[in-house]
Structure formats: C-alpha cells, structure tokens
Design a protein around this nucleic acid. Structure first.
Lengths: 340, 340
DNA sequence: ATTGGCACTCGTCGGCGCGGAGTGCCAAGG
DNA sequence: CCTTGGCACTCCGCGCCGACGAGTGCCAAT
C-alpha cells in the first residue's frame, strides 16, 4: 500500500536526519533502509510528502529535511517507544537513590536527565496546591520585620519577610505565631485562605495591621508562589546545538534565564501526566521556535504535582528522549512517594 | 622617554583590540591615538613589546594582539578607573532598591551586573561565619525523619532533613528542639559547635542517637554548607563570546554548571574586599583558561561577607568591568547593611 | 632615537571549473 | 495504476589561482 510506504519513508528520513544532521536523499535512503523499492519510487513519495508539507529541501537538488509538521507526524504516528538500555536504567537508579532532601532530588534528577538526553533538562518543583501545612514559624527580625516560614509535608520550605508599618514586640509575634499555627497547621494549602480569613478580627484593633501583614504574606507564599521554581541543567549541551546555526543559541540562553518562560514551557499543557511534545513553532515562546520541548508530569502518590522535561533542537531523537523523560519522571515520582 | 611610550603603545593596543576584536597594526594605531610618532617607530616598540611577551601576532604580517601578560600589565599599571555614567548609576539604584528579601537582592544584583557588563555575572551568598543564629526549628516529618531549619540574622534560612536510625516521638522532637534552641539561639555560627558539644549527654541513653543525628546535621548546616551557594546570570552573553571561537563556549558552560568551580572562582583569592582580576591562564580552572574573572568582596556593615564578580573573554573592557563590579558590590553592601 | 622607503609575507576575497549528489520528468514495463 | 531505469539539469562544495591590501622587518638617512 502506497500510503504506508510514504510514512515509512518519512520515518526513515527523520531517523537518518536525526542521526546525520544532513539532508537525506533518495539514494542513501534505500541503501540504509530496506524499503524494497528503487530510489525513483522514493523520489515520487518524497515529492508527495513535500506537497503535504512534511519535508522540505533546503536548496533545489539537495536532500530533504523534515519540517516541524513532519516531526509532528513522526511523533504522533510513527515513533515506537524505545526501551532504555540496561546501563541507562542502572544510571537512573544509582543517580537518584542517594538524594537526601527535596532540593537534592530536584538537582540530581535534572542533571541526570540532561546527561541521559544530552540536552537541556528542566524540572519544576512540586506544586503546593495539594499538600498540607506541616508547620509554620514566625521569627521577629526587627520591630517592623519578621520572617515567616512555612514547611509543607513535601519537605518544601517557603520563607518570606513580612514588613509591617507598626512595630511588633516579641509577645505579639509569639501570639500571632501561635494563632496562625493553630489555624493552618495540618490544613491543605488550598484551604489556608479560608482558615485565616477572619483571623485578623480576633486581635486588638491596634495589632491588626501587623496581623494583616502576616496573613497577606502567608497567602502570597502558599497561593501565588506555589509553583514558581524551575531548575535547569545541561545548558552546555546547547553548544552542540550551535554547530549548525550559531546565532540561534543566544536567544535560547536568554529565554532559559527567564523563570516565567520556563514556567510557561513546563506549564502550558497542564494535561496531567501525559507526555507532551511541542515541536518548533508549536512553541509560542519567542526565541524557542526552532527547539522542541518534551515534558511529562510526575506524581507524588497518585497526584500529579509538577512537570519535568527537556528542551533541544527540533532534530532530536524523539523516541529516546521521550523514553528518558518518562523514565526519570517515574523514578522521581517513586522517590517522592516513598519519602512521603 | 621611550619606556613610557612603549607602555602607551601597549595601552593603545589593548584598548583598540578590546574595541574592535581585531589585531591592531602600527598604522591604525597612530591614526586612532595621537602618539606623536610615526608608524615605523611604533613598529620598533611593538617588536620590543613582543620580545617581552606582552603582545603577539596571530600570523606573520598580521597586527598584534595582547597576550595574557599584556592584559596583566594593562590592568596593573595602565588602566585608570573609568567612572560610571549617570545612567548606569541610576540603573543600579533603581534596580536594587525594590528588593524584598535576600534571594531577591542576590538575584537582582547578579542580573544587574550581567546587564551592565554584558558578561556572565556571579554572586556568592553571604557567608554565615560571622552571623548569629536567630532561630532554630525542628519539625517531625516521619518517625525517623525530621526537618531542621536554621534562621540567621542575615535573613538566610537553611534547611536539612535529619534521618535517625531510631524513632522519635513528638515529645522527644519537642524536647530536642527546645534544648537545641536554648543552646544555640543568639550564638554566632562559629560558636555553635562548642555550644552543642555536650548536648547529647544530657539526654537519656536511648534518646542519644536521635539527638546526635540532629546535632550532626546542625553542624553540617552551619559549618560545612556555610558559603555553598552561588547564583549566576547572563550566560546568554557567552554567545557573543562565541563569535570568534565557537567550540570554546561549551567548556565554559560546563564549568559554570559546577557549583564547586564557581566557588573556586569566587573564593580563590580570599583577600578581603580587594578587587582581583584573574586573566586567562592565571585561572586554574580547566575550560576557563581563555576567560578572565573580575571579583571583589562585598560587605555587610564593615565585615566582608562574600564575593561577587563577572566572567568574560580575556579581551574585555577591564576598566569598565572593574568599575561596574565595584559599584554593584558597594550597593549590595549598602543594602545588606541597611536591612540588618 | 626617529623616520621614510622598500621588499616581503600572508590572509582574505572573488572568480572559475569540476565533481558529485540529488532532483524531476518521461517513457517503458509489470 | 504503480514502479523503474534513464537522462538532463541544478546547484552545493571544494580546490585552485591571482589580485589586493594590511602589516611587518630591515636599512639607510637624518
């Protein structure tokens, strides 16, 4: 059937191009893959694929290169999951098992992922939305400044400085601390807002500004900041990227320095733990339109708490990358769940 | 005097080369600088400078380029401080004034510095050695795991998970917490070790393993980890770096991902707040031998607490970079001191 | 010590020709 | 109707050559 072969040709083109980074022609295609037909036939198929917008040629009389759409079809319909090698599996286990705290888990994971894929790896800290408050602490720094610390059951520690217009003495700080603790400890973060809603009213009128400031900061901490942090690793791998088009690496590095961009990259498709691939221009971030991003959610228990993934050139090894990303996500999930 | 002019020539070569990134010849030198002599004379001087190892020519019959040693002499003897422009001063003020907490100060500073210098900026978190413990907290997570949080008067929060072989119940956790707090709160970090030395002995024999674990973690936190963190920004500026020699950017990116390397870069010359410049091969870190690093200490009060600086190609604008680094360090110091 | 002159080196750039890889088309064959 | 071999065409990449120009080193004159 001709349609089947056309897709086989597309797959072959993608695979060869990813392997060699050079436009692939009909002749070398039949040599490297046993397609059972002649170069001329392949040429016809290629012309058709080009009409469909799945491949393109950089110059007349050069080989073909997959387009973003071509990769899309490849990823959606043609790539079969590539199992990890034993060495890779072992690497994952030994790399992640020694982690001592949340920061350590995040850091080891992201490094591991960048090494496995030889690309830039990203990991988002677990979302706080579903977790509960383990402990709150309020420490006076100066009369008008205090430090609010919130510890969650995921082992994450959030801290914010509270500024008040009026002075607080130690006794007031202690009273606010105990009231706040009482109200929110053990509560889920999403419920914190409700629990502290009328806390201010239970204090004397002249103490209320201070209490209000603490409450406001607490809400910021648990509501607004809740998935702000992204860690990344493997930016050195962009150098290989740049072999081909050198100037393209700067905008990528610039984009990667923006927390907001990273969050968008990881957060855009909040489709649970499904593995998503955004290819080239599908990526709306300016400067990253010639890169692909592979992300997947990872879970604590059976709750998806955040995303991790990698970013690389559109001509990446999608099956391999997808396998690595998925595997690391699974391991991270397991570790978070065990540490629970 | 001929010696004077030779140095003037060196200065001119460095300035022109930094500005143009191209080898500079005798003719263009006399045109751009009013040296009052003819190209032929300059050529003689250049030959002498080359004998001294201060300049070199990439190819026969090309212009001259400063060597690492040439830059060294330039920095040590020839560069005069370049005052910041009004715009730059204003930028520094407005950029840093809105900072709300320590992380924010660090982040804003390092970004500012990278933007001012168009290079990679580094900043080390303030050392804990001289600060005091404001507050300690111990929170049970599971029977054998607890979270230890130490808050210092600089507003820095350190956290570590404590693992014990034996289970701790809530009551024991509370007792350890209060004993530890009592022992170390208000103490300087350097004294913490002494204060907790015989703490374990005051507990029942079967409780001691748990206490020992907490104490050990506490010591790690305040002693070993005390200046571990380095933040960096402006890696995108390496792209401009790479225009010339493309492959050189990868090892730099790799080096920058290693915390240890960053610490060595900032920490190697612990000469108080003096501004230090390490040029090319003076830099012992492999992969960074064709970069220069400009660092300076910054203070809280009158105590130097850490270093900050930038990393860039050896052909950087040293006077401008040094001025920016020094200015930012001064501002950061001022902010830390005020927040005290 | 400085300077003008001069021969020499060498890297850069454009032009030229060639080989090779690849394409598109067409006519013949299953 | 699909496949295939043949063929003409395109165009990139490469090596070669020559001209140009920037820059140097040396030397003799001042």
């Amino acid at each position: 059937m001709t349609e089947d072969r056309r897709l086989a040709v597309l797959r072959a083109i993608v695979e060869d191009y990813v392997a060699t980074h050079e436009p692939v022609g009909s002749r070398s295609l039949v040599e490297r893959h046993s397609l059972g037909v002649s170069p001329a036939t392949i040429r016809n198929d290629m012309a058709a694929l080009e009409d469909e917008g799945l491949i393109a040629q950089p110059h007349t009389s050069a080989g073909r290169v997959p387009t973003d759409q071509g990769y899309r079809v490849f990823v959606d319909r043609l790539s079969q999951v590539k199992p990890l090698s034993g060495a890779e599996r072992r690497a994952i286990g030994s790399f992640l098992d020694g982690a001592v705290d949340l920061d350590d888990v995040m850091q080891r994971s992201v490094r591991l992922l960048s090494q496995l894929t030889r690309q830039v790896a990203l990991i988002q800290y677990p979302s706080l939305t579903r977790s509960t408050v383990r402990h709150t602490e309020l420490v006076g720094l100066t009369p008008t400044r205090a430090l609010l610390v919130v510890i969650t059951d995921t082992g994450r520690v959030e801290q914010r400085v509270v500024e008040t217009s009026v002075a607080m003495d130690d006794e007031l700080v202690a009273r606010i601390r105990s009231k706040v603790s009482e109200a929110v400890n053990g509560q889920r973060l999403v419920d914190v807002a409700d629990r502290v809603a009328d806390l201010t009213g239970t204090f004397e009128r002249d103490e209320r500004p201070a209490v209000a400031a603490v409450v406001a900061t607490l809400l910021e901490t648990v509501v607004e900041r809740h998935e702000e942090r992204v860690m990344l690793a493997g930016t050195a791998n962009l150098a290989a990227f740049g072999e081909d088009f050198n100037g393209a690496v700067r905008p990528v590095l610039e984009a990667l320095e923006e927390q907001m961009v990273l969050l968008r990259l990881l957060g855009e498709t909040r489709s649970g733990d499904a593995l998503t691939v955004r290819i080239g221009h599908e990526n709306e971030v300016e400067g990253l339109t010639s890169t692909s991003v592979v992300t997947v959610g990872y879970a604590r228990g059976d709750e998806v708490v955040a995303q991790l993934g990698v970013l690389g050139p559109t001509r990446m090894d999608y099956p391999g990358t997808m396998a690595s990303v998925r595997a690391v996500a699974r391991y991270v999930g397991r570790i978070l769940t065990e540490q629970q």
